[in-house]
Amino acid sequence: MAVSSLAHEVSDICLGKPALRSLLISATIGDALSALKRSEESYLSVWICDHSSEEKPDFVDCRCVGKICMVDIVCYLCKEENLSCPSTALKSPVSVILPKTSGVVRHVEPHASLLDAIDLILEGAQNFIVPIQSSSRKKHLHKTSLGPTLHNGREFCCITQEDVVRFLLGSIGLFSPIPALSIESLGIIGTEILAVNYHDPAISAVESITQSLTRQTSVAVVDDSGKLIGEISPFTLACCDETVAAAIATLSAGDLMAYIDCGGPPENLVSRVKAKLKVRNLEGMLELMEEFSPYSSSSDEEYPLSPSEPQRGRISRSRSGSYSARLLRRSEAIVCQPRSSLVAVMIQALAHRVGYVWVIEDDYSLVGIVTFSDILKVFRANIYRS
C-alpha cells in the first residue's frame, strides 16, 4: 500500500546528502557573498548559536534560522539606496536578507516519518534541517561567523521538497491510478502566479522574484495577451554574480531574460546596462561591474530582444508531444498542458531541477502553475485510497 512508502524515515532521504555549510547570523552580507563564491552549493544556511549558558558552559544551542543564496543578495542590492552604494550595502548584517516568512525552514529528527515531513510541507515548510552522523568525532563549536559546519558537535544536512518528491517517484506504482490522472482532473493547477510583462522594467519584478524564491517557483514573463514567453527564475539568478543587480535595475524584463541566459550576457546588453548606470549616476554599481572580467559576447540572433513569435527559442515541444525546455537556456519556461498526467509533470520538474511547472494552452496562454507542494497534497490525500 502507499502508506508503506510514507512510513519511511527522513533519514532514508539523507543518504548521500552533504553536510551543510553554515554562516552565523552575526556575519555581514559581504561575508555571505564571499562564502557563496567559495562554496560548491548555491546556498548557505544561517545559524544562531547561543554560547551564553551559565549552567552548562560547554553547551551550545544551535538553530538554523534560514537559507540564503545569491538571489537574496541581488534583490537587496536592487533597492534604490543600495544601487548607489553597493559597497556599503554589503556591510549590512546578513539578518536583513533572511526570509521574513516563519516556518519555511524546520528542524526535524532523523526518525521522523516521511508522512510527518509531507504534513509540515503542506503547512508551509520548504526545507528540513536534519542531523547526520558527523565525520569527525571531535566536538567543535563555532568560533567565527564563517566557522566549521558542526553545531554542538553535530553535522546537519538539508532536505528539500524536491528530495521528497524524488523519493516518492521511486514508489509511484503504489499510488496507482492517481499518477496517471491529469493535473486538471486532480484540481491542482494553481492560478495565483507571479508574472511580469515582457516590456515592463525588470526592477518592477524584484518583489515577485523575492516571493518566488520563498515559494520555490518563478516569475512568468508574458506578452500583452497573457501568453507565456519565458521566465525570470531564481534558479538562474542564483548562478549569476552580484552585478546582475545592475541589469535588473536598468533593463526590461524581456532583456533581462537574455542577459541571464547561459553563456554570458550579450555584449550589446552589457554596454546598455553600463550606459544607463552612467545616466543615473550609479557610479558605485558601475565600479562593481568594472571589477569583473569582461563578459563573453553572444550573437544577437541567439538572444532575441523582441517578444514576437515567443514559441521560437523560448518554449519548445519534445518529440513525444509534451512541452519542455532545453537545460542550457534557463529562461525558457518548463511547461505542460492541463491534460498532462501527474507523473509526467513530476518527471519534468525533477529532470529540470525546478519545483514547479507552468501550465499553458496550445496557443501558449498561461493557465497557471503546478508546484511540488500541490503534488504532495495529492499523495497525502490519497494515501489510504491506493
Rank of each mutant, 00 (worst) to 15 (best):
E9W: 00
I13M: 08
L20M: 14
L23G: 07
T28L: 07
I29Q: 00
S34I: 12
S39M: 06
S45I: 00
C49S: 11
D50V: 13
S53F: 09
K56N: 10
K56C: 12
D58G: 00
D61K: 15
G66N: 02
G66L: 05
C69Y: 03
C69S: 15
Y76C: 08
L77T: 05
K79Q: 14
E80W: 02
N82F: 06
C85M: 03
S92G: 04
S95P: 07
L98T: 07
K100P: 02
G103E: 01
V108N: 04
D116A: 07
N127L: 01
S135P: 03
S135H: 00
L141M: 09
T144R: 01
H151E: 10
H151T: 10
R154W: 06
E162C: 05
E162P: 04
G173P: 10
L174C: 08
F175S: 12
F175H: 15
S185H: 01
I188M: 00
G190S: 09
I193P: 09
V196C: 08
V196W: 01
H199N: 12
D200R: 11
S204N: 13
S208G: 04
T217H: 10
S218C: 14
S218E: 10
V219E: 00
V219W: 01
D223G: 02
G226F: 04
K227P: 07
L228A: 09
I229S: 08
G230H: 07
E231D: 09
I232S: 09
T236V: 14
C239T: 13
D241Q: 05
E242A: 10
T243E: 02
A249N: 12
Y259E: 09
G263Q: 13
G263P: 14
E290G: 11
E291I: 05
E291R: 11
E291K: 10
P294M: 02
P294L: 03
Y295H: 09
S296H: 09
E302Y: 01
E302C: 10
Y303R: 15
L305V: 13
L305E: 15
Q311D: 12
R312I: 14
G313A: 03
R317W: 09
G321E: 01
A325S: 15
L328P: 00
V335C: 15
P338N: 06
V343P: 02
V357Q: 06
I360M: 06
I360N: 01
I369K: 04
I375H: 06
L376Q: 08
V378N: 04
F379P: 06
F379A: 10
A381Y: 01
A381K: 15
Y384G: 07
